[in-house]
């Protein structure tokens, strides 16, 4: 049982993280790669997800409130964009509303909002588009009451992909903004 619990914690993190950032199956495989063979003899992954959330709540190593890990796991650090667009989807607005709430809890924190693009654009255009995306996020957070001086933006264009593939799935994950605590 001890062995089992040990594996459930990282698994729980993976599941929560994946849910928070709309991750892909690809990603789960790579994050939980080390223990996958052990998990295989366990009950099914989906079946144990509810139990694993409980055990992570009890875990003393759960992320400290107000940290990047907290933001990633409990709020959502990123949102995604349509092709060649900086428009915030309803789902994205939901995540940013949670970010604004979370920022109210930690008034000393400030964020850098990174704007990113997929690789299917030219370099300079993507730098401009990334800036447009990061600014869209910043503007919305300001509209939600976050002080502008707590929010920096930076565009990485297509220079810092998150997913390394060269297909629609990777491009969807790379058209994003990511909020990073300064």
């Amino acid at each position: 049982m001890i062995v089992k619990a040990k594996f459930l914690i990282p698994l729980a993190i993976v599941v929560i993280f994946a849910a928070a950032c709309q991750s892909t199956p690809d990603e789960k495989v790579s994050v939980s790669g080390d223990s996958s063979s052990n998990i295989a003899e366990d009950s099914s992954i989906s079946g144990s997800s509810e139990a694993s959330i409980d055990s992570s709540d009890l875990d003393p190593s759960a992320p400290k409130p107000g940290t990047q890990e907290d933001l990633v796991q409990n709020v959502g650090d990123r949102i995604f964009f349509d092709l060649d667009s900086a428009v915030l989807s309803p789902q994205s607005r939901g995540i940013l509303e949670k970010q604004a709430e979370w920022l109210r809890l930690f008034p000393d924190l400030s964020l850098t909002i990174e704007g990113h693009c997929d690789e299917r654009g030219t370099r300079e255009y993507n730098l401009a588009l990334g800036e447009r995306r990061a600014s869209a996020v910043r503007s919305y957070l300001i509209a939600l009451g976050v002080e502008g001086q707590r929010l920096n933006t930076i565009s990485y264009g297509k220079e810092r992909p998150y997913a390394l593939g060269h297909d629609e799935e990777a491009w969807n994950l790379n058209r994003r903004s990511v909020s990073v605590i300064n």
Binding site: E124, A128, E131, R132, S135
Partner: peptide, 9 residues
Amino acid sequence: LTYAENGNS
């Protein structure tokens, strides 16, 4: 050069 601020280049 290009100068970008507040979503405008």
